[in-house]
Amino acid sequence: MSSSEVCFQLKGSNITSIVLEVKQYPSTEFLSQLQDKVSQAPQLFADSAVVISLEKFTSENTPVDFKPLIADCFEAGLHPMAFRSVGETLLDSVRTTGLPALPGAARSGSVQAHEEDNTPVADVTPSGDGEQVEMPLDTPAESETDVSESREVQVKTVIETRVEIQEKLVHRKAKIIERPVRGGQQIYAEGCDLIVLAQVSEGAEVLADGNIHIYAPLRGRALAGVKGDSNARIFCQQLEAELVSVAGIFILSDELKDKAWKQAAHIQLKDERLTIAQINDK
C-alpha cells in the first residue's frame, strides 16, 4: 500500500439533463409560465438538474441580473447547474451568478448534413462539428464507369476512403432489449438507437441518443434524441404512451389520445413540433 490512499477519482461522464431555453428575461411572466410547464409533468421535472441555455436569448440592455432567474428555477422545483451558449456580452452577467458557462450545443453543424443521406448521427455528433462525413457518399462510385484510365487510380483512392467512412457509419450498434421494460425501470441507449422487442410498461422510461423502436405496446415514456438530435424518431407498434419526447420537446398522453392512439405510430420533430403519424394508415 502506498503512503496515502487516494480518496477520489476524477472521471469524464455524460449526464442527461433538461435544458431551459430562456428567450427573454427579466419577465414578470417567467415564473408563472415555468411553474405551469412543470406542473404538466411533475414527475419528469421533480428536482431535475437543468442547464440554462441562452442560445435564443435576447435582451436590449446588458448586464442582465440572472440571480432572480435562478431563484425562480428553484421556486419551480428545478435545480440550475450551469449556463450554456452564453454570448460574449452576457458572459459577465453569468459569472456573477457563480454558475459555470458551458460551451454551446454540439448539434448545430452536423445534424443538417445527415438529413439527406438519412444516416443517424450517434457516432459523430458529440465531437462537435462532424465535418468529415458531409460529402455525399454515392456519387464517386457512379462516375467510375466512364472516367478515362489516367484518372482511374485517383478515383479508386477516393472510393476507398469513402468506403471506409461508409463502413464506419454502417457499423452502428443499437441497444436491443428483448424483455419487457417494467414500471420503475429505465433503459438508456447511449450514443445509439434503442430497439425494444417487448412492451414498455406504464411508469417505465426508455431513452436513446438516437431513434427508439418498440415492437410492442408503448405505455411508459419514450425519449429519443436526448442529447439534442432533433432528427431522432420514435416508432412503436401500439402507442399508449405517458409521454413521448424528441430532443427535449415532449407531449403527454392527454394530447396523444387524439392521434394514432393504440395504433402503430411514428413520431418525429418537424419545425420544433412533434408530429405523430399512424404507420400503415389505410
Binding site: R179, P180, V181, R182, G183, G184, S201, E202, G203, A204
Partner: peptide, 23 residues
C-alpha cells in the same frame, strides 16, 4: 396490476438469476 408490473421488473433485474443474465 401496476404493482405487479413493478415487482416483475425487480425480479428480472435484481434477482440472482438476473445478475447471471438468466431469466
Amino acid at each position: 396490476v401496476r404493482d405487479s408490473d413493478r415487482i416483475l421488473g425487480i425480479l428480472q433485474s435484481k434477482s440472482r438469476k438476473a445478475e447471471k443474465g438468466e431469466v
